[in-house]
Design a protein around this nucleic acid. Structure first.
Lengths: 228, 228
DNA sequence: TGGTGCCATTTTGCATTCATTATGCATAAT
DNA sequence: ATTATGCATAATGAATGCAAAATGGCACCA
């Protein structure tokens, strides 16, 4: 990663300094996550160079970076392609995400302010609203923001960094998965429990709950994602 | 990362195919972890090009990759330098490592074989021996191998990948830290408890123990590492 | 004597070029 | 008709070239 960007490290962030490849990483990541570049499709360097109007050097640097994030696979002498995780790999990454969110829950209880909890409650209310309207897009978005709010409350940059990377790797799978009404209701119940535990600052219990909560998405995701 | 190497992703690994920058990543990482390249020191591209006898392109790719791992910091227009984590950053990363090892403990109980447990017991016995001889180097090495054996038993490649990256980032700090006799004895006791829990396949308890065990290194490390 | 600005040198970031490897297609052989 | 082979084309990996930025030294000045 590089200073301006992103996940794992961002410390020496002076102002105004930018790498070209940083910009490219951001835009290329968007193309991948949005699905504009389809999973398993080969990446043509010349095309992207024209698209971004840069030379191949910074583009290739960006490709290497995204490969390190797990968003691209490198094929020696044949360039790179958009990563498509197998069902098993998705489950593996999900397990990592569960561990990270669990840690965030524990740490958040040590640092979160009442204001932050209140903000999460507001997000939660909107999310319940979206759920009652059976409206997945805002539901997903609000759900993501709640989890990120807890992440932020962990006050741990390293944790937030790996979490961003890991959850990015399975983001598309997450969106592709659709819950049954029962699973959906259980997820809502989990979130309400989470808020209670946050208020009680019960880190140990919140940690376990969040690990279980994230793991509970496993059948949903791997069912929807039948590419092994 | 790239196919042949390494932590996060390594799947499309056909044979014989190699990137130059892969080789460089491995060798450069050794230079950093061994301390041959000192923390905070600037990295001179021309020097390393001569040393590795390659051109700047693959070297720069390797630098980007190691920056993504958190081993190097990128300084726009001023190259890169060896990362030197502050005490706070070390604590942050250690917290992540604790979460990952905890997850490994939980998963290991689901998959570990009796033979693997026996192998860990052998390692543990050697480690106790090194401890009684007050001989840190083999102690550290055996300790590392025990934790890695549990990681391997998690049967989760994604987990092992991030773990390798994260623990690499604080490896030097770990080695620099020296325990008090009490801390040392407690660590040994933890390991014995871990073996008991592995035999009992008690994942939940082992997970908590490992999280606590790793966290217990925090005062040791941050005390020894007073560079904020 | 200590600080400041200027200029030469070095180093970096990016573009371009070159060599090697893969890919697609036409042709030939069975 | 189908598969295999060779060749032309395209794309990749690495080296080199070049312009911009940073670093260091020196003269100049307060």
């Amino acid at each position: 990663m590089s200073p301006s960007d992103t996940a794992l490290v961002e410390r020496p962030a002076s102002i105004g300094r930018r790498y070209l490849h940083d910009e490219v990483v951001v835009r290329l990541r968007e193309l991948i996550l949005s699905g504009e570049l389809e999973p398993r499709s080969r990446v043509n360097e010349a095309d992207l160079c024209r698209r971004f109007d840069i030379s191949r050097t910074p583009l290739r640097e960006a490709i290497k970076l995204l490969a390190a994030e797990g968003l691209l696979d490198l094929l020696p002498n044949r360039g790179s392609r958009v990563a498509a995780l197998s069902a098993q790999e998705i489950e593996e990454v999900l397990e990592v995400v569960a561990a990270l969110e669990g840690a965030a829950g524990e740490l958040a209880c040590l640092h979160i302010t009442d204001e932050e909890i209140a903000a999460i409650e507001v997000l939660h209310a909107s999310m319940v609203d979206a759920w009652q309207r059976r409206d997945p897009p805002p539901y997903f978005e609000l759900n993501r923001r709640i989890h990120e709010a807890i992440m932020a409350a962990s006050r741990n940059n390293a944790l937030q960094g790996v979490y961003a990377t890991m959850s990015g790797r399975i983001q598309r799978a997450r969106y592709a998965a659709s819950k049954t009404p029962e699973q959906w209701a259980l997820a809502i119940a989990d979130h309400e429990e989470m808020i209670i535990l946050l208020k009680a600052r019960d880190g140990a219990t919140l940690g376990s709950l969040m690990r279980r909560h994230v793991r509970s998405k496993r059948p949903v995701i791997s069912a929807a994602f039948g590419n092994a």
